[in-house]
Amino acid sequence: MVHSSFINIRRDLHKIPEQGFMEFKTQSYLLDYFSSLPQERLEIKTWKTGVFVKVKGSQGDRIVGYRADMDGLPIEEQTGLPFRSSHKGMMHACGHDMHMSIALGVLTHFVQYEIDPDLLFIFQPAEEGPGGAELMMKSEQMKEWKPDEIYALHIAPEYPVGTIATKEGLLFANTSELFIDLTGKGGHAAFPHETKDMVVAAAHLITQLQTVISRNTDPLDSAVVTIGKLTGGTVQNIIAETARLEGTIRTLSAEAMAKVKHRIEALVRGIEIGFECSTVIDYGSNYYQVNNDSAIARRFIEFMERQEGVQLVVCKEAMTGEDFGYILKEIPGLMFWLGVGSDYGLHHAKLNPDESAVPFGIEAITRFFHSLS
């Protein structure tokens, strides 16, 4: 099967984006595809809505892993493409359809062309939330087939096709969701003295949260606290009894994440006292930093620098979150950016990756894996 045919597979997958741990159609599509391949060197195991596929090597003395995430995002697609999402309110706006298609292309190649190590392809659900990688690492399937080293990619709209970008060490940040609920006492707008106004309390808290970074974080240790959503109240003449802040925390070290959360909790306690209210903090999904193994990264970078048609970029770390970090916490490996040249970025309703990145990615990864034999 020629690499360009995986563009059609990408389009099929693009039509059926599903939320984390609900990737039933996606899993079924993958299993149907695997059943079409020669089975002599394949072993397939499912886990929740994910799939493990091992391709036996000629020596089998070690296992090289490759991970592709499966889930979509709750975004209404606005691309106008003929193969746009058929699932209302859902879209592959982070490129996981591209990730899976490239992985399928690499897998198909090595079903036909044997190399020394076993290859384990991991199709992982719930990367966007609540974080399938951490749970998958604890599965019996992973314990049985735990790779000795592992690789993954993420599409990068800002780079043109032909670009591969990565670095040694830290690539993606530690991330945490942030939800803060405040409860006071509502009442008529004409009698504010009889109430505990949670819109005012929330406004004060938002302002104070800005000091977590500017006054509580080492300026040489990058961190971000963003409140992206505030809800509170019912109508204009009723003082709000409740309010909710929703945001995100991102840091370049696990230690900084702990310090930021500690400071947020102290500020929230102050709001409780100052506004005579109750509060609940929920950190939601937390993703561990993506830290590339230095020796593996050097080997990968040196290989790609020698490849014709590959523009290798040694990039800076980013505040992006990726649950692949939980895998790299236990298995040495590497994640890299793959250029897809889109005018719109990740998680945008008009994200439209250049599909020529699919055959390019397949070719680049298969060549690299051959070098590991």
Rank of each mutant, 00 (worst) to 15 (best):
S176N: 09
S176L: 08
E177M: 10
E177Y: 13
E177I: 06
L178I: 10
L178Y: 11
L178S: 10
L178T: 04
L178K: 07
F179C: 09
F179N: 14
I180F: 02
I180M: 03
I180S: 03
I180K: 02
D181F: 02
D181L: 12
L182F: 05
L182S: 07
L182I: 12
L182N: 03
L182A: 10
L182K: 04
L182V: 03
T183G: 05
T183E: 15
T183V: 14
T183W: 09
T183M: 09
G184C: 08
G184H: 08
K185V: 13
K185C: 08
G186P: 05
G186L: 11
G186I: 14
G186F: 07
G187T: 00
H188F: 03
H188R: 05
H188E: 06
H188N: 12
H188L: 03
H188D: 07
A189Y: 04
A189V: 13
A189K: 06
A189H: 09
A190H: 08
A190D: 07
A190I: 11
A190S: 15
A190N: 06
F191S: 06
F191I: 04
F191D: 03
F191M: 05
F191G: 00
P192H: 02
P192V: 00
P192G: 01
H193K: 03
H193C: 00
H193W: 05
E194T: 13
E194L: 14
E194D: 13
K196A: 06
K196M: 05
K196H: 13
K196P: 01
D197I: 04
D197Y: 01
D197E: 11
D197N: 15
D197F: 01
V199M: 03
V199R: 00
V200A: 11
V200L: 13
V200R: 01
V200N: 05
A201F: 00
A201D: 00
A201W: 00
A202P: 07
A202S: 15
A202Y: 08
A203C: 14
A203N: 15
A203E: 04
H204Q: 14
L205S: 03
L205C: 04
L205N: 02
I206D: 02
I206Q: 07
I206A: 04
T207Y: 07
T207L: 14
T207V: 13
Q208A: 15
Q208M: 15
Q208T: 06
Q208W: 12
L209V: 10
Q210D: 11
Q210L: 11
Q210F: 11
T211H: 14
T211G: 13
V212G: 07
V212E: 10
V212A: 12
V212N: 09
I213T: 07
I213D: 02
I213Q: 01
I213M: 06
I213F: 04
S214G: 04
S214F: 08
S214K: 02
S214T: 11
S214L: 04
R215F: 01
N216L: 06
N216P: 05
N216V: 06
N216R: 13
T217R: 07
T217E: 03
T217P: 01
T217I: 11
T217V: 14
D218A: 09
D218S: 14
D218G: 09
P219M: 13
P219V: 12
P219N: 13
P219W: 09
L220C: 08
L220M: 15
L220H: 10
L220S: 12
L220P: 03
D221K: 09
D221E: 15
